[in-house]
Design a protein around this nucleic acid. Structure first.
Lengths: 256, 256
DNA sequence: TCGTATTTGTACGTATGTATT
DNA sequence: AAATACATACGTACAAATACG
């Protein structure tokens, strides 16, 4: 009881996160609605029994979530009490599933292994002796193919995970969990592509038909490549949502 | 000299921003290279003559820029000394210009006015009596059309800006400056589209040809709609780059 | 229009917790 | 086990923007 940490379901979280979650819940509950001004920071801090500095850390998190904005002299204004959980392409997820107009209810996963090609050696920072797992995933809405992806993963990544490579469902589950790793980031490119023969067969479309195509490499926060993948979106089924943003920091772009 | 602010080119900036810019410059200059560990926060704070708390605010900015990562117990590690200035689609800019394979060297702007349609009234939060400016912009790389955009802007937005509506260059310049407004955010959708007759003429392509298409509404940080626009990307000339990211916050998604 | 009060922003110092080496 | 380094937390003080009488 000396000072700082708190239990909630046997895990301890920082006070400022607890404060963030409390206020977050207030907004969800409609205690404060869009446009309302929150009580002053001193008052909130006292109510939550934390220092003002700690409370301000919580406010920062709320801002990052787009739930409030604050302005010097005015106060902290509620922007939205929506459940902003559905995030766009700016967050890592599975776009084929997330943005499909029909729910994706079935996936077919296959896995194989091959030596790292030169390109893989480059983008995944591998040695020539490395092996990469090739995971092909086909997504279906009912019987309609909704998309297809080719995932290349260094063998070491899979190796550290105790995944049963015979069980393709487990492989797919491991893949989706991997995408939720905290601190992950990507270099992603989106462009227009065409269905070649193999892809046309998989997606049940004409050869040469135009497709949305996403190609990316995922890295850990330490810049270690985790996987590279290429996603093909079924035609007329996907619309990619993004929240674009300008910084609020008014940092002068240095001369130099 | 009492305490906190500093002049640099007759503007005063917070100490933590100054610290951020100093360290930023160190990285650009190669004083610390990718993979290096920065000196400890106490040492840095003393070198820069600020408190550790202030220095940590600077470190936060450096992290947001992706220049460093820090890990408890280990230290602050340099990720990159690149000039990470080229930002992707996750930041607001002009994607037709930013992602064109050939430099866009010419734009043709036209402007007109019309009563707000029902759709405009909804997305731009206007009254039926409102007027919207319709700004059409065609982008060229040399003589090749690179893209086309239709921008709908409430008349009030333009009205507050003293733009000479006769001078279309000024209108375009105002539009690009508007995109740099700090705190701006968007709801953006990307999908596959087809060139209809008018667009096919403008972009010098076949009618029905597939196109990348971006549709979005921009809002101020106060949730006031600023403009809605639809961008058409010339075929085979654009590849959209995005940096996707997972939060480093390990915030449990609340049950509820 | 002009102060004054309120509210957030910046900054310092200090203490202690926790992860890594 | 000890030293090092970042993370969290509190308290205090003043600056700066805004709101209000």
């Amino acid at each position: 009881m000396k000072d700082t940490v708190i239990n909630e379901k046997n895990v301890k979280i920082p006070l400022y996160v607890a404060a963030y979650e409390t206020i977050s819940q207030w907004l969800k509950d409609g205690k404060y609605k869009a446009g309302d001004k929150l009580p002053g920071e001193n008052i909130l801090a006292e109510q939550l029994q934390v220092s003002r500095g700690t409370l301000r850390q919580a406010m920062l998190l709320l801002q990052e979530d787009g739930l409030i904005i604050n302005h010097q002299g005015k106060g902290n204004i509620v922007l939205s009490n929506q459940d902003m959980s559905k995030s766009g392409l700016e967050r890592i997820g599975n776009p084929i599933v997330d943005f499909c107009s029909e729910p994706v209810d079935r996936v077919v996963t296959t896995i194989g292994f091959q030596p790292a090609t030169q390109k893989h050696q480059q983008v995944l920072k591998l040695r020539p002796s490395s092996v990469v797992a090739v995971i092909d995933i086909t997504y279906y809405s009912g019987d309609t193919p909704a998309g297809f992806s080719m995932v290349y993963m260094p063998h070491e990544v899979l190796d550290n995970s105790n995944v049963d490579l015979e069980d393709t469902d487990t492989v797919y589950r491991y893949y989706t969990e991997l995408l939720e790793t905290s601190g992950l980031y990507s270099d992603t490119k989106i462009r227009l592509g065409q269905a070649r023969e193999r892809l046309a067969n998989i997606l049940h479309i004409q050869e040469g038909e135009p497709l949305l195509l996403l190609e990316e490499v995922l890295y850990t926060e330490y810049d270690t490549p985790v996987l590279s993948q290429k996603l093909f979106f079924g035609p007329d089924q996907h619309e990619l949502s993004i929240r674009r943003k300008n910084d609020r920091n008014i940092i002068k772009k240095s001369e130099q």
